[in-house]
Every structure is written in C-alpha cells, then in structure tokens.
Amino acid sequence: MSRAPARKARPARGNAPPIHTRFQAWGVNHAQALVFSLGRLYRNPFGAALTLAVIAIALALPSGLWLALKNLQAASGDWDHGAQLSVFVADSVTDSALAQLAGRIQALEAVERAQPLTREDALAEFRALSGFGEALDLLDHNPLPALVLVTPVPAHQGPAEVQALARQLEALEGVTQAQVDMQWVQRLQALLEMTRRGVVLVAILLGLGVLLVVGNTIRLDILNRRREIEVAKLVGATNGFIRRPFLYGGLWLGLFGGLLALFIVGLALVLLNGPVQQLAALYGSDFRLQGPGFSGALGLLGTAVALGLGGSWIAVGRHLREIEPQ
C-alpha cells in the first residue's frame, strides 16, 4: 500500500509579537540606554567635567571668532559696501549743470547716491580738514575741481563692478575722470575673505579635535567595560544593543559641551559689551555687540551633537569588533 508523502512542518503563525509590541520594546530599550548613558556621566563627574570643558572650549573658540567677524562688519557699517567714486568734471561745468549731472548719475541702476560738490564746497571742505586755511588765502584762484561723489548700490560693490561703473561714468558729457581707490577695495575684500577662511579652518581643526576627544573618551569606556561586553555577547546580545549606550554617551557629551560653549560665548559677550558700548559712544554711535541668535545657537548645538555622535560612532565601530568572548 502506497504511503502519502509526509508534509513538511510549517512554523505556527501568530508566534511573533505584534508590531506595536516590538515598537514599544524598541522605544523602551532606547530610553533605557539613554538614561543609562546619562547615569554613567553622573557617576563620574570629574572625568565628565574635564571632557565637557575641552569640548566647550573647542566649540566656543570658532563661535567667538565668527561672532567677532560679524560684529566688526556691523560696527564698520558693513565693510563690503565701502566703495565710493569721485567723478571729476570739467572747469566749464557750472553749478547748475553739476546738479543736473548728479541727477543723471543718480538715475543709473548701479548708483545708490550721487552727491554734487561744487568748487567752493570742495575748497571749504579742504580748508576745514587740511589746516592750511591761511595758505589757501594767498591763492588768487580756487585750484580744486568740482566733482560728484558716487556711492554704488550694494550689488555693485565688487572691484569688477566698480571699475565698470567708473568707465560708464567717464563716458558722460562733462566728466573728465572717475576715480576710485580700487586697491583699497581689493585689500579690504581680501582681508575679509582671509578672515572668513581662517575662521573656517580653525572651526574644522577644532571640530576634528572634538571628534578625537569624544572618540578617546568612548574608547576608554569600552575598554573599561570589556568583560561586561564579552558576557553580554555570550548571552546573545547584538552589536547594535551593545553599541547603543555608547552612542548616547557621545550624544550627551556633544549636547552638554555645546550648551557650555554657548554659556562661554554669552559670558564673553556680557563682559565685553559694556566697554564696547563706551568706546562706540565716544564716536557718537549706539553700537552694541550682537549675539549668535536663535539660529546660531541652534546651529552650534546641532554641530556639537553631530560631532559627539560621530566621535562615538567611530570609536565604537572600531573597538567593538575587536571584543569577542573567548
């Protein structure tokens, strides 16, 4: 009698826990790892304080340099917008024609302001600023030409744009020369660009320093818990489960280091704001130091957390693979 082929046993359905239970267990596990990593920092206050101080100083230095550059630009009336052209006119141009010429220049799209300066105005200004008033009285005629002081709009403050505007102005009737100190403009922009790149370079180097500090801190923590990790792997713990508290430890280091860096920057602003306001008042200005603002503070905290997670991820990924139960 023929026998029917035996059917292969199938696993019973419904043994796997529902998805909401698994998601709940995943959330509880992450919360436990988050609190556990915070507790390790609390139980080692001295070592954690030293690490946080190094991270905070490394983050506060480029942030302070960036704020210093930002405040210097604001105090100087935005140095990028400092170009001005002196448009000299022929001696035959009358005062009324000079005013009409200034009006035509003012109508140009690249011009923000055109201020006419007659020969008498130029002589009076030179007399007031030079201190050679008595010598000027000996002259039988006014040697200074009339001119129009032209300020380009912010979008045309670059060296190439200012030079193009100078050529356009020289083509106008009655204009003999349009002069601008392009070398000064180029030096100014080169100085600002060099400062910006210096701040970026310092920020990159100190960011790498934060990665090394966090990575070394997590590495020492892994080595101190080597036996505990071996036992956990023996009972079936995955690398992801073991990695989780160390990653959260790097997150806490980055977050607290960023908060401490913000405190250092804020304290520096408070200490410097008073003397800066007194100095500005001597020049008739109400300038005061500007802080990082909400977006700047959020960016600093985000960068700090990213560096903390990055340093811990590198350390855990390298050293956790080397630990296997014997």
Rank of each mutant, 00 (worst) to 15 (best):
L282M: 06
V214F: 01
R22Y: 07
M182G: 14
L300S: 04
L267D: 10
T51V: 08
V276A: 13
R127P: 03
W66M: 13
N273P: 07
V213H: 00
Q186Y: 03
N239K: 07
I105F: 05
Q73S: 12
G158Q: 11
A56K: 09
G254R: 01
V305H: 03
G174R: 02
T195E: 07
M1L: 12
V89C: 03
L34Q: 05
V231W: 02
E173Q: 15
Y248H: 03
R321K: 11
A237F: 11
L301R: 03
R187V: 02
T303E: 10
N224K: 12
I57G: 07
N224F: 14
A107N: 10
S2G: 12
A97I: 06
L301H: 01
L208T: 11
G236Q: 14
P325H: 01
F88T: 03
G266C: 09
V54K: 04
V148G: 02
E173C: 08
F241Q: 09
F46Y: 12
R119D: 00
L149S: 04
S285W: 13
F23E: 12
F36L: 09
A203S: 08
L211E: 00
D80R: 15
I242D: 10
A297N: 09
R196Q: 07
V175R: 00
R196F: 08
W184S: 06
A58W: 07
A160C: 01
D181A: 11
R13P: 11
